[in-house]
């Protein structure tokens, strides 16, 4: 039986981001992570999961380079975190053309478009 939720998973995720941390959930039944934050563990159909904080290191799984007419180029990416989950992000502090699939990246929490802290990434020095 799932307990009543007193704090939304999204709220917990956002509280970690406010501290500069990328939090994710880890299934206790399946011993594997899942992301985005959920009320129900998709591997077990239960609420038997725990919150963990990522080390913030990952590898670019895919990317798309955008070239706005009125702004700097940038790359939107899918990052495979070392803990075993995938998320969308953007590589900051680098032009789009510097962002390659397979590159190592590191978490950099910065303000998003509405000022809210968001999990961006920077290229990890080779």
């Amino acid at each position: 039986m799932l307990e009543q939720v007193t704090k939304a998973p999204l709220t917990i995720y956002e509280e970690h981001l406010a501290k500069g941390e990328l939090a994710y959930q880890h299934s206790l039944a399946a011993d594997r992570p899942f992301f985005f934050p959920r009320v129900v563990c998709p591997y077990s159909g239960t609420d038997r999961y725990e919150w963990r904080v990522s080390g913030g290191l990952g590898t670019i799984y895919s990317r798309t380079r955008l070239y706005p007419r009125d702004a700097e180029s940038y790359a939107v990416v899918l990052v495979d975190l070392d803990e075993g989950f995938r998320m969308m992000s953007r590589v900051v502090d680098a032009p789009a053309d510097a962002v390659e699939i397979g590159a190592r990246v590191r978490l950099a929490v910065r303000p998003g478009e509405q000022g809210e802290p968001a999990p961006f990434f920077v290229l990890e020095a080779a």
């Binding site: 999204l10 956002e14 985005f36 798309t64 955008l66 940038y74 939107v76 990416v77 998320m87 969308m88 992000s89 953007r90 998003g112 478009e113 509405q114 809210e116 968001a118 961006f120």
Partner: peptide, 15 residues
């Protein structure tokens, strides 16, 4: 707005 997509600026669905 989607906190797992919107902040990163993809043009969806193209991206």
């Amino acid at each position: 707005y989607d906190p797992f997509i919107t902040p990163f600026g993809p043009k969806m669905p193209m991206g």
